[in-house]
């Protein structure tokens, strides 16, 4: 069991109804954590999604550990 902080931005922030939450998870990877949260918050299907752990882009198979800050990154649209 890991206690993690998840921060939400843009469309995911709006769907989650909060900017961040702390939660305990048994998810073995970032992918599994997203699946857990997707089911809970009813996130929309997005054309692409990336994940960052502790302010670094990471791949979806990366483990999530106690104390991590995780951010799911919807398609970017700067400029």
């Amino acid at each position: 069991m890991a206690r993690v902080r998840v921060e939400y931005f843009a469309v995911l922030r709006e769907r989650a109804g909060c900017r961040e939450e702390e939660l305990d998870t048994q998810a073995g990877s970032a992918r599994a954590l997203f699946a857990e949260l997707e089911a809970r918050h009813g996130f929309p299907r997005l054309p692409s999604l990336q994940v960052a752990i502790n302010e670094e882009f990471r791949d979806w198979d990366s483990p999530v550990s106690d104390g991590d800050t995780i951010v799911f990154i919807p398609p970017v649209a700067g400029g």
Binding site: A10, V11, L46, A52, P75, V76, A77, G78
Partner: peptide, 21 residues
């Protein structure tokens, strides 16, 4: 760069660009 753009349209609707939802 992780920056997102929300457009507000003349008809009162709005949407996140590139999210197609």
């Amino acid at each position: 760069v992780p920056i997102w753009k929300k457009e507000f349209y003349a008809d009162g609707d709005s949407g996140w660009v590139n999210c197609n939802i």
